[in-house]
């Protein structure tokens, strides 16, 4: 194996890792905000991919161009899911933890069923996107253009997220709510509104990720399953609820996956990720960057 090949593979791992971070960001945001894990997260991603696909088919809109629209639509969708489902799950009188889990799980199953109904279980793809099949060469390393664009979108999204969290009133309210939701109610911040916006923002982030993935990944009703697993691992690695922990952990996951693929047959490409996860669970259960 040449150093060239190693560098090549780690570079694609890095790009993929940035995208994984983006996929996980919304999950981490919502978890940190209100201690709820969205078990329909993978299906949110799937929905966003179909949205990008739909816009491509209907208006010949390239995923890169439709990404903002997809994100906006997912924002609305996320807020609706909070107001229509999660809000009630959180107010359950008995077994609240269980209710949340199965309410979002059930939602995910419904979304998958709807996707099958509307689009059939067939694999779809966007054949002629702007960047499809193109590569960029940097220092002798070939980077697939869609992945590169996705990684850049991820970087931009995390940058924007950082600004939103640290520089806006909404961000401050978000931060205050995640520290102490009870106290926040006392100072007049409407908790429900913050939660709804949090779900919107989380869904918008996964919406971006979905649009980006639609450039180079197959689109099918079950596509969310494997990505959601990676997202859980990423969020657990980063430290639950830590958005920027998810960013760093996403990169790590991408790199480990690429390294595993170098050493093991492709069917075992997730082994490295699971091993990493298990080690972290044993050694540092709160995650790499989590504070608990």
């Amino acid at each position: 194996m040449t150093t060239q090949a190693v560098a090549q593979s780690l570079a694609s791992g890095l790009l993929m890792g940035l995208i994984y971070g983006l996929v996980a960001a919304g999950l981490a945001l919502i978890f940190g905000l209100m201690d709820v894990v969205n078990f329909a997260h993978g299906e949110f991603l799937m929905t966003a991919m179909y949205a990008a696909f739909g816009l491509y088919v209907a208006f010949a809109l390239d995923p890169l161009a439709s990404a903002p629209f997809v994100a906006a639509a997912m924002f609305v969708f996320g807020a609706i899911v909070y107001l229509g489902v999660v809000r009630y799950a959180m107010s359950a009188s008995a077994n609240a933890g269980m209710v949340q889990i199965f309410a979002t799980f059930g939602l995910g199953i419904v979304m998958r069923g709807l996707a099958q109904l509307l689009f059939t279980p067939d694999y779809r793809s966007i054949p002629h996107s702007w960047l499809g099949g193109k590569t960029v060469q940097v220092a002798g390393i070939f980077l697939p253009a869609p992945q590169l664009a996705g990684a850049l979108v991820s970087l931009a999204a995390f940058g924007a997220l950082w600004l939103v969290i640290n520089r806006t009133d909404f961000g401050r309210a978000l931060e205050a709510t995640r520290e102490d939701a009870g106290a926040v109610a006392l100072v007049g911040i409407d908790r429900k509104r913050i939660f709804a916006l949090g779900w919107g923002l989380g869904a918008a982030l996964v919406g971006l990720a979905g649009a980006v993935l639609a450039m180079f990944f197959y689109i099918y009703p079950d596509v969310g399953a494997s990505f959601s697993l990676i997202a859980y691992v990423t969020v657990a690695l980063g430290g639950f609820g830590s958005v920027f922990g998810a960013f760093a952990a996403g990169i790590l996951v991408g790199l480990v996956e690429a390294a595993t693929a170098l050493a093991l047959p492709p069917s075992l490409k997730y082994v490295g990720i699971y091993a990493l996860y298990l080690i972290v669970v044993v050694v540092r259960p709160r995650g790499l960057f989590g504070s608990l």
């Binding site: 939602l107 199953i109 979304m111």
Partner: peptide
């Protein structure tokens, strides 16, 4: 899925 949600 609706059943699962409904139960929960």
């Amino acid at each position: 899925g609706l059943l699962v949600m409904g139960i929960a």
